[in-house]
Amino acid sequence: MHTRNFDLIAFDWDGTLFDSTKIIVRCIQAAVRDVGGTVPTDKAAGYVIGLGLMQALAHAAPDVPPEKYPELGARYRYHYMTHQSDIILFEGVLPLLDSLKARGHWLAVATGKSRRGLDEALQSAELKGIFDASRTADETAGKPDPRMLHELMEEFGVPPDRVLMIGDTTHDLQMALNASCPSVGVSYGAHEPDDFAALAPRHVAHSVRELHDWLLANA
């Protein structure tokens, strides 16, 4: 039987389990399709993320004439509002969660999302019953305040050294540090992993597969 090093594993949501980038890519593609342009590839649509909206759309859809830009922007906003709550998990997340669950870990979400936003996401049939608890920024203190983790520790009766926080931002890792909990960073989300070093994570995973392997060996 596997000996657990951590009883409770808490995950950030956006950028750690949930791939927000894919929603933006899909919405750009749908908007271009709506106005009759050549639909950009995933790579081309992803490249423009971070630019101003109209600059991004113009770059992603070079064959759409400027007079259609207002319509293009409106269609992008429509699709984004329609799909912003879609469940788009990083590939490999469900097997990872299933493996941890099978080994007897308690699983939680500690997120900056609202309770409504997280609950809508967790309505997915694939995620029902996976998480044992969750905390959101609008119902307790936001990151990097340690209150989310303190509340989870109290709920499960788990000391700090038996809780592992996993996240893609310095806010996640600082929260863990503030709560005296170990942490693991992931480099495929929002923040550059070079910024993690000062926050002393146990590991920085560069893919969900690497995170999965590390957790099976160390959690």
Rank of each mutant, 00 (worst) to 15 (best):
R103C: 02
R103N: 13
R103V: 01
G104E: 02
G104N: 08
H105D: 04
H105K: 04
W106H: 14
W106M: 04
L107R: 05
L107T: 07
A108I: 02
A108L: 08
V109R: 11
A110D: 06
G112I: 00
G112T: 08
K113E: 00
K113P: 02
K113G: 01
K113N: 09
S114N: 05
R115Q: 11
R115M: 03
R115L: 01
R115W: 02
G117F: 04
G117K: 10
G117I: 02
L118R: 12
D119C: 13
D119W: 09
D119K: 14
D119E: 15
A121W: 02
A121D: 07
L122F: 09
L122G: 08
L122T: 04
Q123K: 13
Q123E: 15
S124K: 11
S124M: 04
A125R: 12
A125E: 15
E126G: 08
E126F: 07
E126Y: 07
L127N: 14
L127G: 09
L127Y: 13
L127T: 03
K128W: 05
G129P: 10
G129R: 06
G129Y: 01
I130D: 08
F131P: 10
F131S: 10
F131V: 03
D132Q: 09
A133D: 09
S134T: 05
S134R: 15
S134H: 15
S134I: 00
R135W: 01
R135Q: 13
R135N: 04
R135I: 02
R135A: 05
R135G: 00
T136P: 03
